[in-house]
């Protein structure tokens, strides 16, 4: 019987090996391991064996069954994998075909610049303040040391709504309003971005509406060197660590002393080129120490408090940083323009 079992095993293993489909394998299983299979038959004939032989043959028969079953299983796994492989091969794609597009929008270039500047000054402990675009003559001019009839009002011819109301010509009135709320006793550290308006005919370099960001710091013992330090930190972060700044005397009615800040020209590194008109420097912003009249009008004692203020135009910065050559581009909203600067 031993020989018979060995024979059966070898026969079955040969068939398992030869099977090239799941069905054939199933047939082998039924044929050898089924209730009517030859191994069962062998076991049935065990009655004729001696007591000593029975367990030996029984064990052998079980071993043979297990070996066949395991061989079938191994073979089956192999066949299944091959089948899956074949199926997946058939499902193959042309990965170079374009994907289903996802609509992606983006911010306006001016917003990117304004937010970059906001974040930079937030990092230095500034708050962001906003205010009305239709402003009173008082806050737009008078509170900023520009009384009626002041010649500097010409510098910024404005759109009046009534005699007392106008489209703000700068965001400085937000500073005056913010200072006014502090009862002349608390420090102020703020920047105010926003839209401003001037009587200009729109062309490549003028726009009747544009953007401004102004900053203000009022406290005891604020020094002009603090202004220089803050502006230097701003310029280096905004334009690059290799850029230098310089301050030049200037005039604004609401600051004294007043300066303009230039940064060294990126194109020529200061040697002079057409971008910087040969000077090596590019004008970026106006600044100064808050005029004592402005402090006084906002309720601060200029003997005790001092401060600095600065103002810049995001359009100008965008034009310098990204080579935009026509200010009208910011307001026409040509999709090709807008999309170009989504990564700015």
């Amino acid at each position: 019987m031993k020989e018979r079992l060995q024979e059966l095993k070898e026969e079955a293993l040969r068939k398992v090996d030869a099977a090239d489909g799941i069905q054939q394998l199933k047939d082998v299983r039924v044929e050898y391991l089924g209730k009517k299979g030859p191994i069962t038959e062998v076991l049935r004939g065990m009655g004729k064996l001696s007591k000593e032989e029975r367990p030996v043959i029984g064990q052998l028969a079980n071993e043979v069954r297990e070996d066949i079953a395991q061989a079938i299983e191994v073979k089956q796994t192999g066949l299944e994998e091959a089948a899956l492989e074949e199926q997946l091969e058939a499902e193959s794609l042309d990965v170079t075909l374009p994907g289903r597009p996802v609509q992606v929008g983006g911010p306006h270039l001016l917003t990117s610049i304004v937010e970059e500047i906001e974040d930079l000054f937030i990092g230095m402990g500034f708050e962001i303040k906003e205010g009305p675009e239709v402003e009173s003559d008082y806050y737009n001019f008078e509170a900023l040391n520009l009384p009626k009839g002041h010649p500097a009002r010409d510098m910024q011819d404005s759109f009046y709504v009534t005699e007392e109301l106008l489209m703000r010509t700068h965001t400085s009135p937000v500073q005056a309003r913010t200072m006014g709320l502090k009862n002349g006793s608390e420090p102020v550290k703020m920047i105010c971005p926003g839209k401003v308006y001037r009587r200009d005919t729109d062309d490549a370099t003028h726009s009747h509406q544009f953007t401004q960001i102004e900053g203000l710091l009022v406290d005891k013992d604020v020094r002009m060197s603090d202004l220089k330090g803050v502006l230097n930190a701003f310029a280096k972060q905004m334009f690059g660590a290799e850029r230098d700044i310089r301050l030049r005397p200037s005039f604004f009615p609401f600051t004294e002393p007043s300066v303009e800040m230039d940064i060294s020209c990126k194109v020529c590194g200061g040697a002079g080129c057409s971008v910087c008109k040969g000077t090596g420097w590019i004008e970026i912003l106006g600044a100064g120490m808050v005029h004592p009249n402005v402090l006084e009008m906002a309720g601060y004692d200029p003997k005790e408090y001092s401060g600095f203020a600065f103002g810049m135009g995001p359009e100008r910065i965008a034009m310098l940083k990204y080579g935009v050559d026509d200010i009208r581009n910011f307001y026409i909203n040509d999709q090709r323009f807008l999309k170009q600067y989504h990564k700015a």
Partner: peptide, 16 residues
Amino acid sequence: YDNLPYTLPSGASQAG
């Protein structure tokens, strides 16, 4: 103005 030093405001800091 080139001869002014660079300093940072010394007053009480706020969070911003």
